[in-house]
Amino acid sequence: MPGSLRIVIAKPGLDGHDRGAKVVARALRDAGHEVIYTGLRRTPEQIVRIVMDEDAQVLGLSSLSGAHGFLFPRVCELLNEAGLDDVIVFGGGIIPERDRSALLDSGVSAIFGPGTTSTEMVDFLDSLEV
């Protein structure tokens, strides 16, 4: 169990809904983590820069716009290019089942859809070795 983590919660792309991301941020804060929320409509480049400057170990990506198939792998690719391949990436939002294996292959470690309890997410973070 890694103890307190620094976690960036990000909203990539043109997606104006962040209720879910905020609820997740709050739940992870209450679990004792330091959570940095990026705000809406960030580019993959901006997100990678934020992860670097904030020295975060974990990145949570939230998307409800349907563009996850491009945005999530792009963020993972840029993380690798920046030498941040040790950062754990998880995703959430509206991600259809059929899209998930491609995202997991691209470097996303876990995907949490609607109905996920905050305990599930906290347990996932507790299981990380960082």
């Binding site: 992870l28 804060r29 209450d30 679990a31 004792g32 983590h33 959570v35 929320y37």
Partner: peptide, 9 residues
């Protein structure tokens, strides 16, 4: 909890 929500950016 020791946790924090950092939203200044």
């Amino acid at each position: 909890t020791g946790g924090a929500l950092l939203g200044d950016r």
